[in-house]
Design a protein around this nucleic acid. Sequence first.
DNA 1: TGAAATGTTGGGGCG
DNA 2: ACGCCCCAACATTTC
Length: 487
Amino acid sequence: MARTEKTGSEAPSILWLRKDLRLSDHPSLTAAVEAGAPVIPVYVLDDETPGAWKPGGASRWWLAQSLRSLESALQAAGSQLILRRGEGIAALSALAEETGAKTIFFTRGYEPYRRPLEARLQEALSKAGVECRRFGGHILFEPERIANNAGDPFRVYTPFFKAVSARDLPRAPLPAPKSLPAPSKWPRSDRLEDWGLEPAKPAWASGLRESWAAGEQAARKRLLLFIENMLRGYRDRRNIPGVDGTSRLSPHLAFGEIGPHQIWRAVLTAAEEAGRHDMGEPYLREIVWREFSYHLLFHFPSLPEKAFRPEFDAFPWVKTKPEWMRAWEKGRTGYPIVDAGMRQLWQTGWMHNRVRMIAASFLIKHLLVPWQTGEAWFWDTLVDADLASNAASWQWVAGSGADAAPYFRIFNPVLQGQKFDPDGDYVREFCPELSKLPASLIHKPWEAESDLLAGAGVRLGETYPKPLVDHAEARKRALAAFEAVKK
DNA sequence: TGAAATGTTGGGGCG
DNA sequence: ACGCCCCAACATTTC
């Protein structure tokens, strides 16, 4: 029987990896292994499929680290990672032909450009006699299966959360296979170094290197650390950017180094063991926000480009001022909490969620720059860049999204700073030129007496910028602009 | 997962 | 003692 021929001439399967760079809790990997044929894992760097959101700079850096990590994990399991570059369908068709593969396994995606890609792949390969087998795993529930009583997708978070909570618990995570059956002959692979995923200037990536460890092992370690030390205090600490109170799992989730089922199960188990059934809820609500974003993107594929509420198409954005945009990007707006956030993003590829809301609100409402412009910057600079979460969150802040913050809800960057960074620790870390200011003034240095500023070594307009816009004036202007979208 | 404007209340100063 | 005003402090409404 062919079954006894472990490494014989049996037709192999291809395991097409994308945002599922892990071995555990990986339904398509498990299915490929259980199918019994040799498995050829492949990652295709596809910068050519039209309409795709190509990974930005920070994501490409992370991807390189993650692929390295995955490669060694696969080797430890007796396998390899094949790297190919090019248009996805062509690359996979070629690989199937080279290897004589009869089946291709993959995890489905929910982005608008991935869905036609998967459909066309299936069409192309079936003509060549190759079977496509598609699995879930990236989110908790398939979007087709979650709907309200009318059969429509949810547009409001709370009912969505209730509907999801009422379902059976997400399935138990799958264990990683001990080993992957290897083909007798491995196909050619690109060299990762030749892909140029990491910036040529090492200075740019040094902050990323210092801040993160990519890969499945690091992801699981972080989850355990978070559950062990931080879950209990999450409700109170999650909004304070100056403390390490969040999970920081977002980049691991974005690349599929860990799956939401694993997180869900681990959090619930920890809560049960602590005898506090509801301990995990505040954090799991955030996981469900991610879920909600994916479902929204699935049902409304234009979410990354177009306002969910069409009346916002008429919004009178200010004609883009490149120098304002540059100031925001580089953390030179003159509002310390905004600038600290934007610098954290630039240096570490990540920004605390509370500060994301403040910085995004500032760009949209104080500077009246279209939310898509900020979305594009985040897409390029975030290591956790994720089309669904990014698009849904920017639209949430803009007020144009499903279940969004009302437009007139305008964050006051001074009050937000004082409320969530009361001692100024966060600002001090990322805006060191302000670090000698007292907490009472660190969020509004322009109100400090000149000798106090001098004593702290601050020269407004030189060492640290004056506010780009006056808050009260900007607020009035934003509210006036809002009149245009009121029906 | 707001902020600011506006309204209300009640204590205390003062003629 | 009384009415009047001022203005925190808190509550409600509006943006």
